[in-house]
Amino acid sequence: MTDHTHSSDPTQRPGLPARLLGIAAFLLLVFVLVPLFIRITGRWDFYYTLTSVALLSVAAAGVWLTFYIGRINIGQGAYALTGGYVSAILIMKYGVSFWLTLPLAGLFCAVVSVGIGLPILRLRGVYFAMVTLVLTEVARLTALALPITNGAKGITSIPLPGELSIFGLTIIPDFATLQNPKLAFYLMAALLMVLTYLVLWRIVNSRLGHLCRSLQQNEELSASIGVNTAMLRVLAYAISSFFGGLAGAIFVAISQSIYPSSFVVNDSVNFMLYCFLGGLGYVFGPMLGTLLLYFGWDLLSVAKEYQLLIYSGTMIALMLVLPNGVLSLLDRKGGRK
């Protein structure tokens, strides 16, 4: 248990210049090289895939944070669905601007998660995992039963995000007037992903992160030395759900529709898998895991009926070779173990 906490310890990281260089290279890749690559190759469909990767990794970041306090969260789909519905209903029924619904969707999910989290965060291990799994089902069934969500028919033909301006100054143009809304969505999702991981990294390398690690290792012990564990785990869960709601809201904006089956149990399980595959001990684990699994799945569509076989086979093989996630490769290279 103590091993992998080292890897997220700031003192173990390379020096500041190297780190800044790495971040700059990453930003260059995401915002310049990828659009350039797509323009050259003409694979416009990659935009949709990569936008999804970015958004899914935002939701997965939330799941990762709950892993960080030692809870297995298989309920992120519930919050993504809730966030999506909040955004859709606010836009369609109350005419609220999409940009305003984004934080509102996140906040709504965070508030809901506090109410749900207070009782269920007392559970641990597989009990918590199973309850959160059930939570995804509850969200789907609630969406089916409530009148405001329009049941199985869902909410459709939601307009594209409108203009965002402050004091008459246009910051983001109306998506409907854009020549290429795909690119705009990609840039928005990528920006959100970068911000999310910045926040996550900041949390992990702060006092809050240390406290979370103490929860992960031994909850009783940390409670006994005066850590407010109940408050801490609800806080972590609320932040996690905020990310889930945010990602869900943008997904709705892209697909311009939402149904009770937009996020189901499988999606919740996938969020968890992204975290596992990338590595639970690494802040950027979920991002890499999402990229590998989702992009890999997309590329494998050429294999037709063998797609799922190859995909799951690779997943099992990866698990056998690297049971602690892909990023655990870094550990070995640095000679730390």
Partner: peptide, 19 residues
Amino acid sequence: KRDESTMLLAAGIAFFLDA
């Protein structure tokens, strides 16, 4: 390092059996 890793394996097997 963590017991939960078996969950990824179990989910992978579930996908595999589906395939």
